[in-house]
Design a binder for these strands. Sequence first.
DNA 1: ATGTAATTGATTATCATTCTCAATTATATT
DNA 2: AATATAATTGAGAATGATAATCAATTACAT
Lengths: 154, 154
Amino acid sequence: MAIYEEQFKYFLKEKRLKYTKERKKIIKAITVIQKHFAAEDIHQQIRKQKSRVSLATVYRTIPLLIDSGLITETLYRGEKVVYEKIYNKPHHDHMVCLSCGKIIEFSNENVEKLQEDICHKHFFIPVEHYLEIKGYCQECRDKLKSKTKNELNS
Amino acid sequence: MAIYEEQFKYFLKEKRLKYTKERKKIIKAITVIQKHFAAEDIHQQIRKQKSRVSLATVYRTIPLLIDSGLITETLYRGEKVVYEKIYNKPHHDHMVCLSCGKIIEFSNENVEKLQEDICHKHFFIPVEHYLEIKGYCQECRDKLKSKTKNELNS
DNA sequence: ATGTAATTGATTATCATTCTCAATTATATT
DNA sequence: AATATAATTGAGAATGATAATCAATTACAT
């Protein structure tokens, strides 16, 4: 059994909650999804697997997935809440390209340390943090550059 | 005339947009509001001043305020979008107390530098960034401490 | 003073998320 | 295996922030 399923099952048992077929489908869908995802994406993924679970149940299951330490909310801009898997994955932050929407994950020890220092200075005990950098990725800048060049030549 | 009003007026003129009474009321409300605010708060503030502007107009005006560099979106968690004034204010980040909701603003040059380095390494041109640290402020920890003590004594 | 495009308020629409509730089901206990 | 029971589900309705629509109004360049 996949590690995600195992972990979730264990969490549910501990909380005396039931391991239902629906929850099984949801955890399997999440195991397959690689990138950042919204509630709707889980629902779709299950559909792709020729199965179904109501969207309400997906929404109801998300808090359980968060509490069990399998996923976390991330990237708060915009309409819908986006999640990502975090089980057995070290903390990281995000760069988001304003042009193509690409998400680059990065982690930097110095940023973490610096934040701890700052919190200490403010007598603040950090629990979690989100750092998001918006800007333009190389690919998009290259595209723009070659586009401009072509326009000049035409 | 207040600097905010001046600035907004100038921005509108440049864009050949109109400086209406409604926009005047909105910019005046924002001048008064000190903390982070949502669209609804602007609406309320105008009410407090015994005046009114439709909520629709408030929502319509917000993008103009952002484009004119007077306010920015911030702190994306939760239901509604929250803004804050940024005109003539240096960039800063936020700590949010999970217990009382207090927002502590801080700015740190090293964080900024570090982020630039990281972006450079990833061939990424940063435009803006958001750093939010969630945790517990001293006040809330003190309260908890004295509460626990009292409970032990009772 | 006038023409016109921008703006407004009122209302409706949208869309993600949550809630409700009757019907179903997982699981502990007998 | 049968039972009891609390948890869970699906369907649909409710919510709540924000956006869109549209006819009536208004700011402002000429």
